[in-house]
Design a protein around this nucleic acid. Structure first.
Lengths: 203, 203
DNA sequence: CCCGTTCTGGACGATACCGTCAAGAACCGA
DNA sequence: TCGGTTCTTGACGGTATCGTCCAGAACGGG
């Protein structure tokens, strides 16, 4: 018994996300979002409270989605764990290389722009990186059990390194450059992982 | 025969850089810079033309400085090349870990915020990454000649990977986290470099 | 059919912001 | 000392921005 919403909240979130994603937080005005979505001010502030609150929500949703996708791709039996790891890392590199408009990753962009002054954003970013690192660790450990990565290696260390490489690929991607360079970096990283019982890794 | 400037251009550039660095481009207003520097509008626009032009100049100066520092640290004889490489990479990791206010690196921040919409910024970032990669390549090659890195490895590939790791460390640093984690990543990366004539690297 | 509740549209106030401009100040060579 | 040139100060116009508020619309239970 009340007037129902005339807009789809998720659609608004998507549109707002795209605006923030493309222009950044500070450069996106509330009016931008209003015209893009067709909402009136009353509806907007009533439903989302605030530009900052909206961004935090969008950012959080984005990060949650990221983690979910990654989990779906990486989880699985020990058999094929290394293949899954490789495929996922290569996919991220390819994706980044294909992003010719240089939009990049909202997680990276939002963290770069806001982490210094918004502890909430920092916390979300931190949580996300931790989650990804954990999934990578599990995948590396699985690959070790399957005999595809040297059992002497510390899976947490390798995972942390791989996460850094992934974030680095994303960062380099924003400067353009040749499309082949990013996958090449991913390949190099994968090829350096201690596959057999070679030298002592990650001393 | 004209009235001389009453301000130090370089000092203004430094102050403006710090503002941009801390708040980002969009969130820094010209008035911010004016009050921080004490300049009047006329002087500001007369000397620097524009908020955007000023940022490009600040960004360019910053990148040039970055390259110079790195060159000073990495250049040298083949003897000790690997030690220089290691020292520099660890230094960057330590520095990033010590940056508790999460200000990060202006190159990363500026690129993340502006590369999508400002080709000039993209070009500067690109040029800077290329220069760093080139210096890393030279250093890796030197270490190979000194017998500290396997001669079978492709120095350009290793250098590209190291650059990605460095940028990744910087990106992860902005999310806070334990101070030990970043140096650990750097160490892991260094330890995985093919030191002797181990497995075929970077196939 | 009607009323309470929630939603909508947009006017509104108060700043903040960008970049221009003109009037006057400071300098220095002659 | 004087004139020409450059610099400085800050007022100004026009716009953008954020968030509030309220009058009225839409709905559905009773």
């Amino acid at each position: 018994m009340a007037r129902p919403r005339s807009f789809d909240e998720n659609q608004v979130l998507r549109i707002a996300r795209d605006r923030f994603w493309s222009a950044g937080y500070a450069a996106t005005s509330v009016e931008d979002i209003l015209t893009a979505t067709g909402l009136g001010k009353g509806s907007f502030y009533g439903a989302f409270g605030d530009k900052r609150k909206l961004f935090q929500r969008v950012f959080d949703d984005y990060c949650t989605g990221l983690i979910e996708v990654l989990r779906r791709e990486l989880d699985g039996p020990d058999e094929g764990a290394f293949a899954r790891l490789r495929a996922q890392i290569m996919a991220i590199a390819d994706e980044t290389a294909a992003d010719t408009c240089l939009r990049g990753c909202l997680l990276a962009k939002g963290t770069a722009e806001l982490s210094e002054h918004d502890p909430q954003i920092t916390a979300i970013a931190r949580r996300t990186f931790d989650a990804i690192e954990e999934m990578l660790t599990a995948c590396v450990a699985a690959a070790q059990r399957a005999g595809e990565i040297s059992p002497d290696a510390d899976p947490a260390r390798l995972a942390a390194l791989l996460l850094a490489v992934l974030r680095g690929i994303e960062a380099l991607g924003k400067a353009g450059g040749s499309p082949a360079s990013l996958p090449r970096i991913a390949e190099t990283a994968l090829s350096l992982l201690p596959t057999h019982k070679t030298m002592a890794p990650a001393n």
